[in-house]
Nucleic acid binder design. Structure first.
Length: 112
DNA sequence: ACTTTGACTATAA
DNA sequence: GTTATAGCCAAAG
């Protein structure tokens, strides 16, 4: 079996394991994959997340400031915020409130 | 094989 | 406090 998953697939795996009501950052995911600094690649990987089956909870991934930077990539610009609020995460002005409280670090929770 | 990009992050002005 | 720029790296064109 080939475990040669591309960087994108590795990102998908991490995002898929994000627990309900939790969020993480692009840098944290990249860092968890040993590619700290490739935070942009994480976001770009999400660019193809909508073609996955099933799609990954990209709405749980925000930038380092807790800002919904990629909300425009969803079906609707408010879809991301609606999803986060639906999970109990307060979002105000495209920014996650208590971001540090909902932050989920894959490098710590994940046993890689 | 080269250029451009991109849902980031950090620092400088 | 806000805006600009640089550094970063892998995939798509």
């Amino acid at each position: 079996m080939s475990n040669e998953q591309s960087f994108f697939e590795q990102v998908y795996e991490v995002v898929k394991v994000i627990p309900y009501g939790r969020i993480t950052t692009y840098g944290a995911i990249a860092r968890c994959l040993g590619a700290s600094g490739s935070s942009r690649m994480v976001g770009w990987a999400m660019n193809g997340s909508h073609v996955l089956s099933p799609p990954i909870p990209a709405h749980r991934v925000v930038n380092r400031k807790g800002v919904l930077t990629g909300k425009h990539h969803f079906g609707s610009p408010d879809a991301m915020q609606q999803l986060l609020e639906s999970e109990g995460i307060a979002v105000k002005d495209d920014c996650v409130q208590d971001f540090d409280r909902f932050f989920w670090d894959p490098a710590k929770e994940l046993h890689l």
